[in-house]
């Protein structure tokens, strides 16, 4: 029996409420409440991590990939330069049995592999480091991810900051020098199609868990010492 007029209208309204997303976008928790409330990561979207190499963009993308994969779903790592070091992924809590490493030889094959991996509904997340990504290829990836429900994690150099992007969230990562754990400042450039502009500081534990940093306020100065004037009593 074909759906009635009111059912169609209801369905369309629901889609509008979801921001015109055709698939149910499943939320992904990064493990850090502050970051989640600011960005709101969802399956079926692209997240772009920008930053200088050595600054922590890949670390944060890997944490999110681990969260998206959970216990059982596969992660696809596409690396043209063959620099990724699997033991480091394992040390961050990623089960290597669930990771497929793909090493395409040319940029053309790189784009093709990304589009294939992102359009596969079985894949939980795709982690990649595209240096150059054309506008059309980027849009194709976004549509593929939206269709399949996989999370695309693109780590790009800071020079890609002014390039057009189809990512749902664009985050700029800078390291914050501190004593103790590694700490990063994440500036939200764009999130959920809207403008960003807010920042959050997170730090990562040895086990690869994210925590929001709580700035410690210096101890309030003590009240000015007042000279106690003792009344001389006889």
């Amino acid at each position: 029996m074909p759906p009635g007029r009111s059912e169609i209208i209801d369905s369309l309204q629901r889609q509008l409420q979801k921001g015109l997303r055709t698939t149910a976008a499943e939320p992904i928790a990064s493990g850090c409440r502050g970051l989640d409330s600011l960005v709101g990561f969802r399956a079926g979207t692209l997240v772009e991590w920008l930053g200088e190499e050595g600054g922590g963009a890949t670390t944060l993308a890997t944490v999110l990939a681990r969260q998206a994969c959970g216990d059982a779903r596969p992660l696809v790592v596409v690396d043209q330069q063959r620099r990724i070091y699997p033991p480091a992924l394992a040390a961050m809590g990623i089960d290597l049995r669930r990771v497929v490493f793909v090493f395409p030889a040319s940029p053309r094959e790189y784009e093709w592999t990304l589009s294939q991996a992102m359009s596969c509904p079985a894949v939980a997340a795709v982690l990649c480091w595209p240096r150059k990504l054309g506008d059309r290829a980027f849009r194709r990836l976004q549509l593929s991810a939206e269709q399949s429900g996989s999370l695309g994690l693109l780590v790009r150099p800071a020079s890609a900051l002014h390039e057009p992007s189809w990512a749902e969230a664009r985050l700029f990562v800078e390291p914050v020098p501190c004593y103790g754990r590694r700490r990063f400042k994440i500036s939200v450039l764009r999130c959920g199609g809207g403008a960003g502009g807010r920042t959050v500081e997170v730090e990562i534990s040895e086990e690869g868990l994210l925590h929001e940093t709580h700035p410690l306020h210096p101890v309030s100065p003590l009240a000015a010492a007042t000279t106690v004037q003792r009344a001389a009593r006889a």
Partner: peptide
């Protein structure tokens, strides 16, 4: 679907380019 993806990518890029660690 995952098996099909691995087959497709291995077939195009070569089996040596799709690996598990």
């Amino acid at each position: 679907e995952f098996a099909l993806l691995i087959d497709r990518v291995s077939s195009r890029l070569g089996r040596e380019a799709v690996l598990r660690a």
